[in-house]
Design a binder for these strands. Structure first.
Lengths: 124, 124
DNA sequence: GGAATATCCGTACGGATGTACGGATGTATA
DNA sequence: TATACATCCGTACATCCGTACGGATATTCC
């Protein structure tokens, strides 16, 4: 609130239009916390891997991704807390898989399409 | 590399399968830096607003979002740097709009679908 | 039942990120 | 040309986030 604080919208119609359609701060926060969970190289590759092979344990996941088991464990912790990943315990190994209610658009479009998009991006 | 370092994959087939399909670290980083840009309540609502009304100046954007002009200016700075937003100067006001090459899947699916998804989410 | 192992959890540290402030730039208007 | 104003830029600061380490838990094998 420090710069100008002009009290007259320059384009009141557009401001009103935008306000009407705008998601609430609460909805936006929920959405961004979801996106934040995917906005990490380790986590997105982890999710991608689970999307492909159904389930993996921490050690194998670390091998597949080429990162430390600590990193995988931490990533899984966050995803589990958010309900995006569930575990199945078999003996002493814990298998991880994407939750059944993993957001479909996130899986179909953001994950697969965006990976393809980023791959073929000519510039940047 | 500190926890266990088991040198035998428990499920070698799946590990290999995952490794083959996995995006490279470089591609993943490019993708996640893109997602990080949307993973912020101010920025995603800002993008959403521009998606709806084409173009707005900083002051009006601040009014529409209900946040400080500083916050909007900073958000625009990042989006501009990433090439997601472009500006048009008319007199002393600067109009901001989404770039023509704004990633379509991001716009169509992540933005619109996910906003809808998050809205109707019953649990969480 | 005891030893070994796969994994999880809590804590501490370094780096990245968002916010707040002051000044600079350029444009319209009188 | 001088003043007001919309916006941008650089800096300083607080906070958040990911990583690394140590210990705890549970399960299998001998």
């Amino acid at each position: 609130m420090s710069i100008t604080d002009h009290d007259h919208p320059i384009d009141p119609a557009r401001v009103a239009h935008a306000q009407n359609r705008l998601p609430s701060l609460e909805d936006a926060s929920r959405l961004t916390s979801l996106l934040s969970l995917m906005a990490d190289p380790v986590r997105i590759r982890l999710i991608y891997a689970l999307d492909v092979v159904e389930e993996l344990c921490v050690g194998d996941l670390a091998l597949a991704l080429g990162v430390s088991e600590d990193a995988v464990s931490y990533a899984l912790r966050l995803l589990r807390t958010a309900g995006l990943v569930v575990t199945r315990k078999e003996g002493r190994v814990v298998y991880n898989r994407l939750a059944d209610d993993f957001p479909a658009p996130l899986r179909d479009h953001c994950l697969r399409q965006l990976v393809a998009l980023t791959r073929s991006a000519p510039d940047d």
